[in-house]
Amino acid sequence: MNTALSMTVPSVGRRTWITTLIFTAIVVVLPFFISGYQRTLLQKGLLWIPSVFGVYILYSLLRQVHFGQSIFIGLGSYITAFMAGKYSVTNELMILLPLALVVSIVVAYVLGIFIMKRTGFYFAVMGIAVTMVFWSLVYKARTITGGSDGISHIKNPSLFTVPLSDMGLYYFCLIVSVGIIVLMLRVLNSSFSLQLRAIAGDLEKAESIGIPVKRMQRLAFTIAGANAGITGVLLAFSYNYVSPSVFEWGYGANFVQSAIIGGVTSFAGPVVGAFGFINLEFFISTWFANLWEIIIGLTIAIIVVTVGEKGVTGIVQTLFSKIRCK
């Protein structure tokens, strides 16, 4: 359905790894210089990065818009809320994370059979549809999920049975997030992603040189879902609270918007996008509380019209290359 504009996907080189290292160093030392509240914002940003990376992979490699990251964040969050909150089974991260990972992989794979049946517009709206179905189920199954009240009083997590302090949780989130970034960078440089780009470029040709198109598309969707599922657990622990709003389609759209703000022509995109979106959200809602939706909506719309999917990182790249030419 797309008259795809040409879009070059960068390759991971030494520069990327050095940037990742610098980024890690910054987020490691930053908590010592900022307030506790700012640290929670930072933590939220870190946790958003893997989900935005999922959107990024589907967008930059397959040219698909993935509105459904909220499904998996919601699943991870509610698993945590049940296990560490409502039913008090366990608050052990080493149990909850693998559990959420397995659940999101299974759900993503099964959903992928249906919603990856067609691509483009249909894939996008099926993403929205699934998350709304989850929303309505959680909203209505009041006895189990607490309905619109959600589930609060989630216990603080423990790691290998050692309870984590707030600071401890921050560093754990940091490790997970950076770990996923490194994994995703490797995925982006693998033959897997080369073949995904082939599928996006010309589906018939890809099929006729033996690429199992449907299965690879589904796997990409599953990887995105797994990323979000893991962060769902940590987000629930960060807020100590879960409500059906994690399944709202607008929440899923926020990850797409983050990816667009950051840009999909650079690996730094998801990181810039996640932090950019969260800070934008924070500042606008403090100063122009009512105008939050209008401002963010218009911002994204204008970014898409003017620079397309290049986003902030794309603009910076263009500026740099112009300077270098002169």
Partner: peptide, 25 residues
């Protein structure tokens, strides 16, 4: 595959022929 280099075009087919679809990392 318009958005790839000539080398990557041919390389994609070579990967596919070798059955390396899922080597993710």
């Amino acid at each position: 595959f318009d958005d790839m280099t000539v080398f990557d075009n041919v390389r994609t087919a070579c990967f596919s022929s070798a059955g390396k679809h899922y080597s993710l990392f």
